[in-house]
Amino acid sequence: MTTVSAPAPVGLEAGAPPRSLAGRIVDRLGSGVVQVVMVLLGLFWLVPTLGLLVVSLRSVQVNSAEGWWTIFTKPAELTIENYSNLLASGFTASFWNTVAITVPTTILVIGIAAMAAYAFAWMEFPGRDTLFLVVVGLLIVPIQIALIPIASFYGGIGIFGSIPGVVLFHVAFGLPFAIFLLRNFFVGIPASLLEAARMDGASEWKIFASVVFPLGKPAIASLGIFQFLWVWNDMLIALVFANPGSQPMTKALQSQMRQFGSNVDILSSGAFMSLIIPLVLFFAFQRYFVQGMMAGSVK
């Protein structure tokens, strides 16, 4: 007589041990309920940004008397006067200084690091591994120990307080992490692709530009987002190396903190202007950001 065993429960293979509570929770992470919860958490994370926007669009008197959430019942209190005062205060120059510092820094770091990472990943030259270890070692060097020597050096060559001086400092300290990140991504590219390109007569530069760089777009986009945000939000380097004519927004806002009680309108509108660009950048390139974060996790 043949005995027919009962079918295994759905989601559980025959003979497999029972799933733990944590395992069952993980299995349900793709459910609609969890997705709704994640959306709600994301909206909750944006509440401070919404509050900052509302504060920047109301007068100082109203902000002092009421909380920002009262705007839902009093929308007539919104005004763009704060932004008009902000632009009249000279903040526009600081905004363009921030752009002039952040954009060249991001482009230079990506370009130099991508070429260096390709060399470390796929080119043979004497001392390659030792030099890469030196680059990795530079990751633990704190910025603070270089401030005084670099400031003295900049003063000697006449670029202290200028935008190029700030850009060069950011590039120098951004390269170690950038090279490390891209090199670890580039080594995961199939060697057969590079060998096929070499057999077709492609030079190393052609291989880098036509094969490696396009395949590395997810990691490069992630690096670009990280680097842009680091430089855009930096204050330490700006405080040390930027003078009033080259100061970015972070330093301009910091200079207003001494009078916080009387110029919250300038601070709130300036803070939102400095915040909105990184938010737009992140949401515009979030697909590449996620791909870059996941790159290399599965071989």
Rank of each mutant, 00 (worst) to 15 (best):
F120C: 06
A242V: 04
G261Q: 15
F125I: 10
F160C: 00
P214D: 01
A113M: 05
G11N: 07
R19S: 05
W96Q: 02
G90Q: 00
Y118E: 09
L50V: 14
I25C: 11
N63F: 04
S162L: 03
N63G: 06
F125Y: 15
F72R: 05
L29R: 14
I189R: 07
F95D: 05
L12G: 03
L138H: 00
A271G: 15
F177N: 06
I276R: 13
F180Q: 02
W205L: 15
F260M: 07
R128I: 08
V99A: 02
E13T: 15
K217L: 12
L131A: 09
G270E: 13
S162C: 06
N233I: 06
K217V: 08
G224A: 08
G224L: 00
A242K: 02
G161D: 10
I225H: 02
L193T: 03
L12H: 02
R128K: 14
F226D: 00
G174Y: 03
M115V: 12
E77Y: 13
F160V: 00
S89W: 10
V62G: 05
G156N: 13
R128H: 08
F283H: 11
S203F: 07
E124W: 06
M199R: 11
I276C: 05
G270A: 09
P248M: 01
S94W: 00
P104Y: 09
Q291A: 15
G165R: 04
N263K: 10
N243P: 08
I140Y: 15
V99G: 10
S162W: 11
D200I: 02
P142D: 08
G67C: 11
M38S: 14
W45R: 10
I80G: 14
G245N: 13
N243T: 13
E204K: 10
I25E: 10
K217H: 08
S31W: 08
V171D: 01
A284N: 10
Q144C: 11
Q286T: 09
L40E: 07
G137C: 06
G155M: 12
P7W: 14
I220L: 06
A116R: 12
M38T: 11
N263S: 07
A146P: 14
S64K: 12
V54D: 05
R28I: 00
V54H: 01
G67K: 05
A113S: 13
F91N: 01
L12M: 03
F120E: 07
A114N: 03
P142F: 05
N233E: 04
F95K: 01
P17C: 03
